[in-house]
Structure formats: structure tokens, C-alpha cells
């Protein structure tokens, strides 16, 4: 099964999750997701998701100057984003356990 299809539905949650403890800028967030094991994820997916979460009011941004390159735009969870992450985690937990049960029975 193609992981990227599964990823589509949970990309928001994954991005919110890697921002839970530390703020991050675009490329940094991509790197965290890949390091966490989502190796198929693309830069455009992360960038697009960040834009959308920001537009939806879950993220705040600030710019940090960088010495050897362009400024970096950092994204941070706000209160709405944390609530969204918490709710999303619950939904995911239920969904995953349902799927696990289902697959164990049928396998």
C-alpha cells in the first residue's frame, strides 16, 4: 500500500505533532518528519500544510535572521493548534485501534 495515500489524511496531525515541543522553520520541520520515519514526505506537502494550518489559525509565525542565509520563518503552535492536536490525537488513537483490531481479526 502506498504510504503517501495514508499520509494525506494525517499530514496536519503529523506537522502539529512535530511542532508540539519545538518551534521550527519549513525545511527543519520536513527533516524532523523524515527523521521520525515519514521518509516519503515531500517539501511541498509540508510547505502547503504549514500555510493551511497557519491560515486556519492553528499556528503563529515569527522570523529569525540567519547569518549565512535568508531569514527563516519559524512556525509555532498556538492555543487553538494545541487543542486541534489533542483532538486529532484522540481521533487518530481510536481510528488506529479500530484498524488494528480489524486487521488482527481478518489476518
Amino acid at each position: 500500500m502506498d504510504t503517501s495515500q495514508l499520509l494525506k489524511g494525517v499530514l496536519d496531525l503529523a506537522v502539529l505533532a512535530v511542532l508540539r515541543d519545538d518551534d521550527g522553520y519549513g525545511y527543519d520541520i520536513l527533516r524532523r518528519l523524515r527523521t521520525a520515519g515519514l521518509s516519503e514526505i515531500g517539501d511541498a506537502s509540508v510547505y502547503g500544510t504549514l500555510r493551511r494550518l497557519f491560515a486556519a489559525g492553528y499556528l503563529t509565525t515569527y522570523v529569525v535572521p540567519s547569518e549565512e542565509g535568508p531569514h527563516r520563518k519559524y512556525y509555532a503552535l498556538n492555543a487553538a493548534g494545541r487543542t486541534q492536536l489533542k483532538q486529532g490525537a484522540e481521533v487518530w488513537g481510536e481510528f488506529a485501534s479500530t484498524m488494528n483490531t480489524l486487521l488482527r481479526e481478518r489476518a
Binding site: D12, G42, D43, A44, S45, G48, R52, L53, A56, G69
Partner: peptide, 29 residues
Amino acid sequence: AEGAGATLADRLGPPSAYAAELRATLGHT
């Protein structure tokens, strides 16, 4: 910084593919 001399297209794929991926992120919140 990585110093491998890679271009944007090397790393991100052709602009059309990038656009397609970007489009796919629309509309799931």
C-alpha cells in the same frame, strides 16, 4: 550548506510535481 551542489529541481523535483503535491495538501482541515 550541504555543499553537494544540488539545485532546487534536483531536490524538490520539477515545478509541476511540486505544484501537484502542493495542490494535494489543499482542503483537509
